[in-house]
Design a protein around this nucleic acid. Structure first.
Lengths: 69, 69
DNA sequence: ATTTAATGTCAAATATATTTGACATTATGT
DNA sequence: ACATAATGTCAAATATATTTGACATTAAAT
C-alpha cells in the first residue's frame, strides 16, 4: 500500500503524528505504521484521514502491483 | 459505515455477490457483510472494489454520524 | 549544553476483519 | 413443479489491525 499521508500531514497542516492521531482517535503507533506503508488500515480510518487533510482516499492511498488481483 | 456497494454491483455490471467476491479474491460472506454495512473493511478492499466498479472509495462508502470523531 | 518535543521501533495483548463450512430462503429458468 | 443460482445468516477458526507500554534516537528551542 503506497501512501503519501506523511506528505499531506506536513503540507496541509504541519501536524505532528501525535496531533493527527488524536484528531482521529487512534494511537500514534497506528499513524507510524500507516506512514511506513506496510499496513492495511480500515476504510473508516482512511476516510477520516482524507477528511481531516482535505483530500480523498485515492489521493492518500494507492494500490501497488502486488495488491492487484 | 454507509455503503451503496449493492447499488453499484447491480447498476454497473449486474454482478452476483460471488462474482464480485471472486474478482477481488475475498469470500462471498465478506461481500455480504460489507453490503450489510455493519462492518469496517480494509482500505485495500475498498480501493479494489472502487476500481472494479469504476467509482471512488468516497462514492462507495460514507461515514455516518457515529463514525465522526 | 541541556531540556523538550517529535519520531522510530519492538513486543505483547486485545479487538476485529476475513475465511470456512454449513444450512435455509428466495428468486429465476425450464 | 422442479432444478439451479443467488442470497441471508450463523458460529467457529484464523489472520491481521490496533492498542499499550516502554525505550532509543533525532530535531528544535532555550
Amino acid at each position: 500500500m503506497k501512501t503519501n499521508l506523511r506528505k499531506y500531514r506536513f503540507e496541509q497542516d504541519d501536524l505532528s503524528q501525535q496531533q493527527l492521531a488524536d484528531m482521529i482517535k487512534v494511537s500514534r503507533q497506528t499513524i507510524v505504521a500507516i506512514e511506513r506503508g506496510d499496513y492495511n488500515l480500515s476504510v473508516k480510518l482512511a476516510l477520516l484521514l482524507a477528511r481531516k487533510l482535505n483530500t480523498t482516499v485515492e489521493e492518500l492511498f494507492q494500490l501497488e502491483e502486488k495488491d492487484y488481483v
